[in-house]
Design a protein around this nucleic acid. Structure first.
Length: 368
DNA sequence: AACGAGGCCAACCGCCAGGGC
DNA sequence: TGCCCTGGCGGTTGGCCTCGT
């Protein structure tokens, strides 16, 4: 908050003077008395004519300041309090679609102001995305996530030699318990890395609802310099080989309801549905159910044709990234992993258990 | 208990678009 | 057509608060 008497912009004669710098115009925090005067006046006379409102209402404020105070704080429709997880989800989606168009975003979240959303973005969501390895501007995965973990990736790449060898059958039998765990990790690493053609099978299936992953894959295949990295490509082939090799240990997803829910048929998928280890199926189902909450956007914005036309983009759900996360190792590990993601200290920060697949993946003891 | 660092967020600034004349 | 006024927007600021040491 600015000090009432200070001004960051000097009142030099060469530049136009900000309205609030005029002599006799009060600045800084609003007092309850001023709020009362402004609120009662606007309720009586209505919004508008902000320039002359202070004089008419008897306030020593500039019109802009009055408007801002009314819009962001005094308006009856303004909802105070913490941003709910659903609202946070909406903000993420809308920001991904609209960018820093805070007023547009706010217009689709009832009761929230552009200023509030902007502040919340800068204070919480932006940092959260960065922490998760996403670019807060493009909402796409940052490649430095990979480069910073190159040693780990190289260790994984070494497995390709094991996979390619004839010793696999014997080794696999010995490694089976750990392999089941590891396979799930690799499988969900492979998900974001597989080709766009195989990942984007139709507009109305599981993969369209995880378009974040698809876009990330697209990035990787088009303009990501890391694609040239032999170690990275080795890892890529490793994950494919290992997943294929380990598939015999894993049960294919048998749940017919799941398949029908996502319209998964052999006709509209280039690839078959992902093989999901038993230990992960519960987690996967929970994600399927969670997609229903994401539909609130289309409810809120049912008349926005632009948004309707780009609906598929909106279906990117950061929570859906969990589809590519390894299964929880134990109940305890689930709690530990997911509670820590938000980092700590942010006051009033809503708790959201979303994490990036890479974050979980590389915390998995199985890959160390 | 005291202090410093960092985070949060209300408020302000500069710019721009649209409407009226 | 051009100027002025008004409202609105996104970016930025800085005082207050919380937390860690």
């Amino acid at each position: 908050m600015r000090h009432p008497l200070s001004s960051s912009s000097s009142t030099s004669p060469s530049k136009p003077t900000p309205c609030c710098s005029k002599v006799g115009i009060k600045r800084g925090p609003w007092t309850p008395e001023e709020d009362e005067i402004l609120a009662s006046y606007v309720k009586k006379e209505g919004e508008g004519r902000w320039r002359t409102l202070p004089k008419r209402a008897g306030l020593m404020r500039c019109g802009k300041s009055c408007r801002l105070r009314w819009m962001n704080y005094l308006r009856p429709s303004v909802k105070r309090g913490q941003i709910a997880p659903d609202e946070e989800d909406l903000i993420l989606r809308l920001h991904r679609l609209l960018g820093n168009r805070w007023s547009l975003i706010a217009g689709r979240i009832p009761g929230r102001t552009d200023n509030e959303i902007k502040n919340y973005w800068n204070a919480h969501l932006k940092k959260k995305l960065i922490r998760m390895g996403f670019d807060p501007v493009t909402h796409r995965r940052r490649t430095d996530v990979f480069s910073s973990s190159l040693s780990q990736l190289m260790a994984l790449a070494n497995l390709s030699r094991l996979i390619g060898s004839r010793a696999l059958d014997e080794s696999a039998l010995r490694l089976q318990p750990d392999a089941l765990q590891f396979a799930s990790s690799l499988h969900y690493l492979q998900g974001p890395l597989q080709s766009p053609a195989s990942a984007t099978a139709s507009n109305n299936n599981l993969f369209s609802q995880t378009s974040c992953i698809t876009e990330t894959t697209h990035d990787y295949n088009t303009d990501d310099p890391i694609k040239e990295d032999p170690d990275f490509n080795s890892l890529l082939s490793t994950t494919k080989l290992f997943s294929e090799g380990i598939a015999s240990f894993s049960q294919p997803l048998q749940d017919n309801n799941f398949a029908s829910h996502h319209h998964l048929t052999s006709n509209n998928l280039t690839n078959p549905p992902p093989l999901v280890p038993f230990s992960f199926q519960t987690s996967l189902h929970s994600q399927v159910e969670r997609t229903t909450t994401s539909q609130c956007l289309s409810v809120v914005d049912g008349v926005d044709h632009h948004l309707e036309s780009t609906e598929s983009a909106l279906w990117c759900d950061y929570n859906d990234l969990d589809l590519f996360l390894p299964p929880p190792l134990t109940e305890a590990s689930v709690v530990t992993d997911h509670c820590d993601v938000n980092g700590g200290a942010s006051r009033g920060s809503p708790s959201s258990a979303t994490s990036s697949w890479s974050e979980i993946f590389f915390r998995d003891p199985a890959v160390h």
